[in-house]
Design a protein around this nucleic acid. Structure first.
Length: 845
RNA sequence: GCCGGAGUGGCGGAAUUGGUAGACGCAAGGGACUUAAAAUCCCUCGGGGCUUUGCUCCGUGCCGGUUCAAAUCCGGCCUCCGGCACCA
């Protein structure tokens, strides 16, 4: 590479694309990102959540993977064996929609997207070991989903039951809760109905208590995420008790957390799906109507069954209703209703003219108003022998009393439900089950795995799974009796795929066998640092914790928790533009603050999460083409600390780009002298001190919660100081070179290409990533002089340079002798002097 | 409604254990270089006041408290963002 001198200035201009492509090629050819395995090093497993191959990466990915790459590269330089893998969450609905809408096979669509996105990731200069790439739609991978399913089936952790699902009649498919918007299908706007369907479930509730308890061991997780997990599991302790049905030999078992209000129950409600609802209600049509309103919040709908229940504590006869707001899935599917002390029951009672009976009053009061329910604790009234007790005491006393009489028992309930994994879709893992008329539900034998997802399917515009039409697939011989049988056509929820992929990365591609415990699990797991969006704070992380426990109980690992440390990055946001007539606008649709379509004044300024619909996205391809990957990475790390939302600013990107130019120019404008200075020991001076201080700051900022933004600010300060440093001697040039090389080392995890290039330019042999992370000398970093701030009564009155490490008495004397301070303290008695070493002194008068 | 998180210059953000509020960057203004522009470099940059190269007062959402000292700790509010939401 030649350097042209024109008019005394070097023409060598920073060309990010050229530099970046050169080093990406070099890294690939030299296998630089291969997972380390040196026995004397400690391991570090750095993982970013793998993407769904939707087509192109977005800025959220750029941020996520930039963060992960800094950590991976930094840890490698700190001497760890680093595992830093990447893969694809490749099953899912969008691929199937593409098939329906564009006629492309989901597999082709997916693989094409992966091709494109993999190039984008490589173009970002990310240090992945692609030998371990996970592709969840490959039979080699999903075979083990099926294997896990069979193991869980054996243990009773996978079971089939009928339950209500969101069903879109027009698409003929089940919808997830988040695909139902205002009771309508997200795709076709049809009204979603509740349909009862046989579905496969994984028994995550078996681990509910353990998953909850272990939350407290998640020390490396953000507290907010741990809390969300706890709330999701939602443990509540209460009482189960039976209400006998008057004139029948049946009982209604109810669950309550408010045993203290038992005397205030004025009716009982059953969920519409409760078996007794069917039994007690004769008007089936009316019952159907209630069922239609099940799970809908707009209004409460009830139906009197014509029967009465008997309150176990006082023998009162109270009416039994079927009510749409009572959930079948929680507790026992039946409740006692205490309208005086529960707002929902209160509303229902008002609507159907049912009595309201107060049994708890606030301490020191005798009555409560009847405008709304009194839900707080208080003192019991009209509650027989329990009258006068406080709520908390009464809950225990009443529960005990019922337990003794054999009429109830204290129980624990969880909000957490078993995980329904059946999807009436094509593009997912086939559930390995066969239905035989003779033998019933028969699991596919392990030796027959994987059940391959057939490719020769036809997609109809109406939705529904095309597997149902595929005779070759459906018709099989029963593994037990050999007779004719039918395959399950549902596929698994894609959350299954992502619940254990981090185990799979521990070994190279396709090299996996879970029938015996892989030693790689013991070496690499747990993940030391997991990084991803907070949108997965509950489901993905909870399912992964569940799967890890299942694997533990299968003897595949000793671990219970897969992720030692978790970093949830903030969203990438940008200013939006909105026209009162035309809605969201692209920046190019606005001219001089006005909409180019209609000329109305554009409302701008609201910062929102980047999304196509709000037209405020930045395309990573454009960004990288214009500024290069190093700038894109550096800006997304500099603009905010990783866990906070990041506000995108095109101007800010320019600033970061400028900074890299400055680094580049420092090297090229001083190249000859810098090369000559190779081997010259640095000399003690202010720049050397600043260099050591910067190593310390950058290292500490990375170690302390990955505060990359301040680490980068520190590097900028050092670069500013290098720019203004004018070397006078050979030794000065030694210092200069040391400072520049240190900047490159510190910068290398953030902007790896430019660091690598300039490192080589200075006459060093690549790769910079084989160099150890620099260390600092505390003695050199120490300031000789410090600025002493002198306060009088807490207000800054003077500043004074003093030698560091001056004894306290001398500091006081110097401060008191300062003319300004003398004037202020003159003739006044000094009450006290506080000295904060190395910082400040406060004189109280 | 319940549970979290946040609020600091014109803007993004710093301030590690309570110890100089505003690091670093952006924007803005002024200057140098240039025929000119871009780029680059230098200077100024929270607000007010004054006797203006300095001095002084105010200032971290609002009100109060603890302390020699509060962006930081405590109590009470306000606003915004996120999660859950008929879970009995």
């Amino acid at each position: 590479m030649s350097v042209l001198l024109i008019g005394g200035l070097l023409e060598k201009k920073y060309n990010p694309e050229k530099v970046e492509l050169k080093w990406q090629k070099y890294w690939a050819e030299n296998n630089l990102h291969k997972t380390g395995s040196e026995p004397d090093k400690k391991k570090f497993y750095c993982l970013e959540m793998f993407p769904y191959p939707s087509g192109k990466i977005h800025m959220g990915h750029v941020r996520n993977y930039a963060i992960g790459d800094v950590i991976a590269r930094y840890k490698k330089m700190r001497g760890f064996n680093v595992l830093h893998p990447m893969g694809w969450d490749a099953f899912g609905l969008p691929a199937e929609n593409a098939a329906i809408n564009q006629g492309v096979h989901p597999a082709k669509w997916t693989y094409d997207n992966i091709d494109y996105m993999k190039n984008q990731l490589n173009r970002m200069g990310l240090s992945y070991d692609w030998e371990r790439e996970v592709l969840t739609c490959s039979p080699e991978y999903y075979k083990w989903n099926q294997w896990f399913f069979l193991k869980m089936y054996e243990k009773g952790l996978a079971y089939r039951k009928s339950s209500f699902v969101n069903w879109c009649p027009s698409c003929a498919t089940v919808l997830a809760n988040e695909q139902v918007i205002d009771s309508k299908c997200w795709r076709c706007d049809s009204i979603v109905v509740q349909k009862e369907l046989e579905q496969w479930f994984l028994k995550i509730t078996h681990y509910a208590e353990e998953l909850l308890q272990a939350c407290d061991s998640l020390k490396g997780w953000p507290e907010s995420v741990v809390l969300m997990q706890k709330n999701w599991i939602g443990k509540s302790e209460g009482l189960e008790t039976d209400f006998a049905i008057d004139g029948m030999d049946e009982k209604i078992r109810i669950f309550t957390t408010r045993a203290d209000t038992l005397f205030g129950a004025t009716f009982v409600c059953l969920a519409p799906g409760h078996e007794l609802s069917e039994k007690l209600v004769t008007d089936k049509e009316a019952l159907e109507k209630v069922k239609e309103h099940y799970g809908k919040m707009e209004q409460k709908v009830g139906l009197f069954t014509g029967h009465y229940a008997i309150n176990p504590v006082n023998g009162e006869k109270i009416p039994i209703y079927v009510a749409n707001f009572v959930l079948m899935e929680y507790g026992t599917g039946a409740i006692m209703s205490v309208p005086a002390h529960d707002q929902r029951d209160f509303d229902f009672a008002k609507q159907y003219g049912l009595p309201i009976k107060t049994v708890v009053v606030p301490e020191g009061k005798e009555k409560i108003s009847l405008d709304e329910a009194y839900e707080e604790d208080g003192v019991l009234v009209d509650s027989g022998e329990f009258t006068g007790l406080k709520s908390a005491e009464a809950r225990v006393a009443i529960a005990k009393s019922l337990e003794e009489k054999g009429l109830g028992k204290r129980v624990v309930n969880y909000r957490l439900r078993d995980w329904g994994i059946s999807r009436q879709r094509y593009w997912g893992t086939p559930i390995p089950i066969i239905y035989c008329d003779k033998c019933g539900t028969v699991p596919v034998p392990e030796a027959d795995l994987p059940v391959i997802l057939p490719e020769n399917v036809k997609f109809k515009g109406t939705g529904g799974s095309p597997l149902k039409e595929l005779e070759d697939f459906i018709n099989v011989n029963c593994p037990k009796c050999g007779g004719r049988a039918k395959r399950e056509t549902d596929t698994m929820d894609t959350f299954v795929d992502s619940s254990w992929y981090f185990f799979r990365y521990c070994m190279p591609k396709d090299d996996i066998d879970l029938t015996s415990r892989p030693p790689e699990f013991d070496y690499w797991m747990p993940v030391d640092q997991y990084i991803g969006g907070v949108e997965h704070a509950v489901l993905h992380l909870l399912y992964s914790r569940f799967f890890t426990r299942v694997m533990r109980d299968l003897g595949l690992t000793d671990l219970s928790e897969p992720f030692e440390n978790l970093l949830t990055q903030g969203m990438v946001c940008k200013e939006t533009l909105k026209c009162p007539e035309h809605g969201w606008l692209l920046p190019e649709e606005v001219k001089d603050g006005k909409c180019i379509k209609c000329g109305s004044a554009v409302e701008s300024g609201r910062v929102e999460k980047m999304s196509k619909s709000k037209k405020n996205v930045v395309d990573p391809d454009h960004l990288i083409n214009k500024y290069g990957a190093d700038t894109a990475r550096l800006f997304s790390l500099f603009a905010a600390p990783p866990e906070k939302d990041l506000e995108w600013s095109d101007k800010g990107v320019e600033g970061t780009y400028r900074f890299l130019h400055r680094v580049w120019n420092i090297v090229y404008q001083n190249l000859e002298k810098l090369k000559e200075a190779k081997g010259t020991e640095p000399d003690m001076n202010a720049l050397l001190r600043k260099t050591h201080q910067t190593i310390k700051r950058v290292t500490n900022d990375i170690e302390r919660e990955y505060h990359f933004n301040t680490a980068i600010a520190a590097m900028m300060e050092l670069v500013n100081e290098i720019s203004s440093f004018k070397p006078k001697s050979d030794k000065d040039w030694g210092t200069f070179r040391f400072a520049v090389e240190t900047v490159l080392l510190l910068l290398s995890p953030f902007s790896p290409h430019i660091a690598e290039e300039l490192w080589e330019t200075l006459g060093n042999s690549p790769s910079i990533f084989n160099k150890p992370w620099p260390s600092w000398d505390e003695e050199i970093a120490k300031e000789e002089e410090i600025e002493l701030v002198i306060q009088v009564n807490g207000k800054v009155r003077a500043k004074l340079m003093i030698p560091a490490g001056l004894p306290e008495e001398e500091i006081k004397q110097k401060a008191l002798n300062e003319p300004k301070i003398k004037a202020l303290t003159d003739e006044k008695p000094i009450k006290k002097i506080f000295v904060i070493r190395g910082r400040l002194l406060n004189i109280v008068i």
